[in-house]
Simulated assay, not measured.
Amino acid sequence: MKLFVAAAVAAGLLSASPAFASAELAKAKNCMACHAVDKKLVGPSYKEVAAKYAGQADAAAMLVTKVQKGGVGTWGKVPMPPNPQVKDDEAKQLVEWVLSQK
């Protein structure tokens, strides 16, 4: 199915929506190894993250830093490792997508 969708996007038959593109980016950057949209895995679900930071003006910038540099303590004792392979623009796109999961 993914191959069909990718081929359809490439052919111009479908547009790659930001939500689809961000979900694919999250998979490509291995975010989904520890997180899921709607259930806790190693880390919190994206819906939990969106709910926790809803309405906080500085949340996106703080989360971009956390994605790239890691952190510990906000969600318990299990640390989130740093992800230096995630570029600034990718981290911003991922965080915007996570915060939109309501």
Rank of each mutant, 00 (worst) to 15 (best):
A60I: 03
L13W: 11
A7C: 03
T65C: 04
V9M: 06
K77G: 15
C34L: 02
K27D: 09
K66N: 05
G73L: 12
A36F: 05
P18I: 04
G70N: 10
L25H: 02
Q93S: 14
A26T: 03
K39T: 12
P82L: 12
A16G: 11
A51S: 15
T74M: 13
Q93W: 10
G12C: 04
V42T: 08
A54L: 09
V64Y: 02
K66M: 10
C34A: 01
K102D: 12
L94T: 02
A50S: 13
W75C: 08
K66S: 05
K39F: 08
A51T: 09
D38T: 11
V49A: 03
V72S: 09
K2R: 04
A28G: 14
V64S: 03
M80V: 06
G12E: 07
Q56W: 10
A33P: 00
L41G: 06
P81C: 08
P44H: 05
A61C: 07
M62L: 11
D89G: 15
K52R: 15
V37M: 08
S17M: 10
C34S: 08
K52C: 10
A19F: 08
E96I: 08
V72D: 04
S17C: 06
M62R: 13
L99T: 10
K77D: 15
V64F: 02
A61P: 01
G43P: 01
M62D: 03
A50N: 07
A50G: 09
A7K: 02
P84M: 09
V72L: 07
G71L: 09
Q101L: 11
K2Q: 09
A7L: 07
A60L: 08
P79Q: 10
G73Y: 11
W97V: 06
M62K: 14
W97A: 04
A6K: 12
V5F: 04
G43S: 06
E90H: 12
V98E: 07
A21D: 11
M80D: 01
K52H: 15
E24A: 14
Y46T: 00
A36W: 01
A6E: 09
H35A: 06
L63R: 01
D58L: 09
P18W: 05
K102W: 12
S15D: 11
A21Q: 06
V67N: 00
E48T: 09
L25E: 00
Q68S: 08
V37Y: 01
Q93Y: 09
A33C: 03
C31N: 01
A36V: 07
T65W: 08
L13P: 00
V42G: 01
E96S: 15
